[in-house]
Amino acid sequence: MTRISSLLTATAIGVVLLSGAALADTSGKKIALSNNYAGNSWRQAMLKSWDTVTKKAVADGVVAAADPFTTGENQATEQAAQIQNLILQGYDAIVINAASPTALNGAVKEACDAGIIVVSFDGVVNEPCAWRIAVDFKQMGAVQLDYLAEKIPAGGNLLEIRGLAGVFVDDEIHAGIEQGVAKHTQFKIAGSVHGDWTQEVAQKAVAGILPSLPEIAAVVTQGGDGYGAAEAFKAAGRPTPLIIMGNRQDELQWWKEQKDANGYETMSVSIAPGVSTLAFWVAQQILDGKEVPKDLVVPFLRIDQDTLEANLATTEKGGVANVEYSLEDAQKVIAGK
């Protein structure tokens, strides 16, 4: 009985929407999420965001279903098989965070040939028939220098903390930082260490290089390493430079403490795991018949002095600051604003 009544409510909502907005064009469509890995806090937050946003979208009658599927072992062949199964299950669109940019091309092409919309994000695929929501990691490095140039016009020595050696993301952010240094010539990279996006590793690496460094004006980072760097400076008894943060909860917490104690100023930048929900809305818009360019760029999530408290309050302990995207956000990204 309750099932029937809830069905009735759902139908009623659907009818209201039909009469109200043009949204309901996709109310019969099914969207699937094909995810290759769920083993870290970023991915967990990503799946959680997907769940929150799509459950509401389904309840509102925007789409008929939005089911997440995750493969166990981060293997491309497994994910390719998963995508082929999703084709058979009759989904209208598949949103993919891919294990490999190339190894899924065959399966993605099969999906496109079957008339299915494929949207890849974060881990994008290079098959031309799919849409790509890529992260502009280079820009993420460059904005750090732009911020520093504004904050410290006189310039000075920088310490660069890099990510995991040999990973594409590390190379990209590093290239962005180099680009920024070339643009703002008053800055000079005095030292560089690998922090592997982990606070403990970053702390050890920074502690190791500090004695050999001149006075450091600022630390440029890749996320997950700012707090470790701050601890290393403190342990060495050196003045704390301006450290760019990476949206991790411990980093924001430390920043808040410093801000309250001595008015410390910095900024924080990283990718929000909620980018999965952006991909969801983009897929929905394509299904709705909107003209969407094949290559889109995700805005990264930037936290400044005045937005710190609000972001810290919504970030779980041990987590990453997150935003869930709305339909309007997706429309802005599609329009290229």
Partner: peptide
């Protein structure tokens, strides 16, 4: 046969096999 299906390769493509 695997690379024919995926159309391009990856060094880790078949470790599960």
């Amino acid at each position: 046969s695997l690379v024919g299906m995926t159309t391009s390769a990856d060094a880790n493509i078949a470790l599960r096999y």
